[in-house]
C-alpha cells in the first residue's frame, strides 16, 4: 500500500459554543487515502490537532454506516457533500482530488442552532415528532398477525419508503428557505398510508405542521433541493401528500 494520498486544504467552521461568534479556520491534511470515508478524514485531522495541542473539531457521528442520521455537515456547498444518496459517513474521499480546498460547515437553519463547531441542535425534529409522529396503540404482548389487515402493496411500499427517513436534516440544510417539509411529510406519510396510522391521521398532520411552523423553519417553495440531497431519496410526493392531508384535515376538523 504505497499509493500516494491526497493533500487537502480544509476550511472549517469553528465556534466555541452556542453563544459565541464562529468563523472559518483553515487546516491542512496530508496523505489522505481515497478509500477513507469523510469522517475518517476528519478523524485524521482531529488526531493531528490533538497531537499539536489544539482543540479537536467537534462533529456529530454515531453508526458510521448511514442509518442513524447523526452525521451532518455541509461540504463544499452541499449537505452530505457532492455524492448522491449518501450520508457524510458514507461519503468517500475519492469524490475529491489532490490539492482540493473543501469547505466544511454545519447545517444552517435558525431552527438548528450551532452547539459547537459543526454540531447542531436538531431537537426541533424531536419536538415535531412528539407533536404527532406516533401511533397510540398498545403494542406490547398481544401483537396481531401481520396478514390480518390487508394493505395494498403500493401503499405499504410508499409507507416504508417514507419510513427510511433518518431525520438527519439534510433537507432543511439544502432548502433555500430552510424548510423542514420533506422531513415532516415523510413522518406524516409513513403512518397515514397504513390503516393503523389512519386513525389519528387528521390530528397528526395538523399538530406536526403547527409544531414545524413554531420551530421557525421556512416555507416550502417546491425547489426540490431536499429530494436531491436526501441521503435516503425521500420523494417530494410526500410533501404533496402532506399538503393535501393538511388541507382536508383543516377543512373537516370539528371545532
Amino acid at each position: 500500500m504505497s499509493e500516494k494520498g491526497m493533500n487537502l486544504t480544509l476550511k472549517i467552521w469553528r465556534q466555541k459554543n452556542a453563544t459565541s461568534k464562529g468563523k472559518i479556520e483553515t487546516y491542512k491534511v496530508a496523505d489522505i487515502s481515497e478509500h477513507m470515508s469523510f469522517l475518517e478524514m476528519m478523524d485524521v485531522l482531529n488526531e493531528q490537532l490533538i497531537n499539536e495541542g489544539q482543540e479537536p473539531i467537534a462533529f456529530d457521528h454515531d453508526c458510521r454506516e448511514g442509518i442513524c442520521g447523526m452525521c451532518s455537515l455541509h461540504i463544499n456547498g452541499e449537505a452530505h457533500g457532492p455524492d448522491r444518496g449518501v450520508t457524510t459517513c458514507q461519503l468517500h474521499m475519492r469524490m475529491f482530488n489532490d490539492g482540493d480546498t473543501i469547505y466544511i460547515e454545519p447545517f444552517r437553519a435558525k431552527a438548528f442552532p450551532v452547539i459547537k463547531d459543526l454540531i447542531i441542535d436538531r431537537t426541533a425534529f424531536d419536538r415535531i415528532q412528539h407533536a404527532g409522529g406516533f401511533v397510540s396503540v398498545n403494542t406490547s404482548g398481544n401483537t396481531q398477525d401481520a396478514n390480518a389487515l390487508p394493505i395494498p402493496k403500493a401503499d405499504a411500499d410508499k409507507a416504508f419508503d417514507a419510513a427510511t427517513c433518518i431525520g438527519c436534516g439534510a433537507c432543511v440544510a439544502s432548502c433555500k428557505n430552510a424548510s423542514a417539509m420533506l422531513y415532516v411529510s415523510a413522518k406524516v406519510s409513513q403512518f397515514s398510508l397504513l390503516p393503523q396510522g389512519k386513525v389519528e391521521a387528521k390530528d397528526r398532520v395538523l399538530n406536526m405542521v403547527e409544531q414545524m411552523d413554531k420551530e421557525g423553519f421556512g416555507n416550502c417553495t417546491n425547489t426540490g433541493a431536499c429530494e436531491v440531497e436526501c441521503p435516503k431519496g425521500i420523494s417530494l410526493e410526500n410533501i404533496a401528500r402532506m399538503n393535501s392531508e393538511y388541507l382536508k384535515a383543516s377543512i373537516t376538523k370539528e371545532a
Binding site: 469547505y103 435558525k110 433555500k176 428557505n177
Partner: peptide, 21 residues
Amino acid sequence: LQNNKARSVKYAMNKPSANAS
C-alpha cells in the same frame, strides 16, 4: 422575507445549482 429569516447565518460556500433549478 420569512424564508430569509429561517436561515440567519448563510453558508460561506453554497452550491444551489447542484440541486435546484
